[in-house]
Write a protein that binds this DNA or RNA. Structure first.
Lengths: 335, 335
DNA sequence: TCTCCGTTGATACATTTGTAACATGTGCTA
DNA sequence: TAGCACATGTTACAAATGTATCAACGGAGA
């Protein structure tokens, strides 16, 4: 990508993703080269994880062929090809890296927002990959079993705590979060009464607030189950409990990104809903209960926005043709 | 890919995904090992694509440390670790796309959370692509110009409104949001006093609450500038103002996804910060002001033994003095 | 202060991985 | 059949990558 210096520019295929490059060069290929190219397309991970020798062995061609292949699609050598192949797995990464360094000069607002969102893409990607199956199950179990649930979050995390609490509150009774009115002291007054049948969920991201850590340690010491939601094993609350969910929340423009954390929390709520016996019913009941407060849905469907034709804007693909679905059915019963 | 799972754990940490292994071994780690582990978690792609030498260079530890790290989490050597790391990328990719549509059967909690996050990835992608440069600039202008700012959000969006308000509050005076204590009536009491010099930001996603729509219409009619944050041109509040920011927030498991909306909001705050003259200063002042409430650097972590306190690379001036991955400086001896 | 111990990095060495020169083989044309 | 062009494989060598040993450093305890 960057340092293709002094190459004899024989073919035009010097950029693009690996599959693109391959299909561009494919017509000229023959025999062994095609075989290898096919294999790369079919089993990119296998190719990525082994060396040139390993790869050719699976295909039955020679190392020379593999090497020629890498050059034929525009790389300096096999090593460069492989490195690029690996990067390709993480789609979100490439653009972010660029943007990261480009901010801070004169950038338009749209660019900054885009960069910020890009970084969240990378965060989400990482968060998803770092999920641990066991821990997720355990967390959901704990939530379903708990008599009372208290969500602790300070400062930034307070809002997240509120969102989590209100999400869980749809399926579980007695969920509350540390509100700014309580403060840590008020929280401790509440938590003093919590026991092994209850549950505390602490959300803490850098910069870690001491109150959050101490409240968590306090309840944990008293035998209250604890779920920690934080950014990595190095976090002070990760050490307090077995049940830790990690979200990556890095941010160029501020200390942490709440968006990726929220994505994790919403996923968690989804998982709880999925295992709650009456979740569908509950949603539907609420939907009809809330009806009077809702803006009347355009009756029937798709009435063209008559009077005020906002005709200035082209219809964004965002809303292209689909009405938001009020309630999604989750047919599922607990095991 | 995930097939290492099944086998019985014979000697401690010999199974599981890389992040699992890391978090299991993490408590015993210290100093350099932690630094390297953090880097692996933070930049897995970078680690995967370069050799052991390249990886350690980015962290600032020695190759020996990286090698020890690989063994410590149960691999025979660094090469094996790297191969496994690479495989890990794919496992997350293929299945998730499927899951999106296949939920509702027996899915594990981790699968559901992963699917949920995947959907948010798609949402973010769409949101980023649909940004309109003009609108973004205009929104930021409005925010910077406004004397007072009121953020309106009901139900779900209330928490988002709170987050936006507290984000903007760092750079602008007189920002408040509709708190649950106020209710719509309380809000109207406030907004009654707002005029053309002020600004209202309304966040509304399906299901659209009538209160949000009416409050917005009310203020707009009185000449108060309005920024709408919603899901598409079909939204009832999109029609009320020119300045509409769209976030895609579709969700399989619930009516809307707040995460992608939040990503947009955080981007917006970032853009405001970027154009605020004293944003860096403000962040730093706050950082030192808040110090007493923060957890001191973690107990087990990073002893100041090297007495080279993390010679961090210079970062964007906007980044408030935080290092996601500490780059440790090696003392280079000339050969 | 000294000694012990754990942690870490430097470096020489072993191994793996990639490259390029050369060899083989096949099919075509004269 | 010789001669050539092209595709492919073999293999020696070069470069890179990974490993093991050992020394330096700093802290804890005598």
């Amino acid at each position: 990508m960057t340092s293709l210096h002094a190459r004899p520019a024989e073919s035009g295929s010097v950029s693009g993703t690996i599959p693109e490059r391959i299909s561009r060069a494919y017509p000229q290929f023959s025999g062994a080269l095609r075989a290898f190219a096919d294999y790369v397309l079919a089993e990119p991970v296998e190719v990525a994880r082994t060396s040139i020798h390993g790869a050719v062995q699976s295909v039955g061609v020679s190392v020379a062929t593999a090497n020629r292949f890498a050059r034929a699609i525009g790389f300096k050598g096999y090593a460069e090809f492989r490195a690029e192949l690996i990067s390709g797995f993480s789609s979100a990464f490439a653009p972010v890296e660029k943007l990261k360094n480009e901010i801070s000069r004169q950038s338009t607002s749209a660019e900054i927002i885009a960069a910020s969102i890009s970084q969240d893409l990378a965060n989400l990607e990482a968060t998803r990959q770092n999920l641990r199956a066991e821990t997720c199950t355990e967390a959901v179990d704990l939530i379903l079993r708990a008599e009372r649930i208290y969500v602790v979050g300070i400062d930034n995390s307070a809002h997240l705590a509120g969102l989590l609490a209100s999400g869980l509150g749809r399926y579980r009774p007695n969920v509350r979060s540390l509100s700014s009115a309580d403060g840590a002291f008020g929280a401790s007054r509440q938590l003093f009464r919590y026991g092994p049948a209850d549950l505390v969920i602490t959300i803490a991201f850098p910069r870690y607030f001491r109150d959050a850590v101490e409240l968590s340690r306090f309840v944990k010491d008293r035998g209250v189950p604890l779920i920690a939601i934080t950014d990595g094993p190095a976090s002070p609350i990760a050490a307090l409990t077995e049940t830790v969910l990690y979200a990556r929340a890095e941010r160029q423009l501020a200390s942490t990104s709440n968006a990726s954390v929220l994505a994790l929390l919403e996923g968690l709520v989804g998982a709880v809903a999925h295992r709650s016996p009456r979740s569908v019913e509950i949603e539907q009941q609420f939907a009809s209960f809330a009806l009077p407060w809702l803006e009347p849905e355009h009756p029937g469907q798709r009435k063209p926005r008559a009077s005020k034709p906002a005709a200035t804007k082209p219809k964004s693909p965002l809303a292209a043709g689909r009405r938001p679905v009020p309630v999604r059915k989750l047919k599922k019963t607990p095991k």
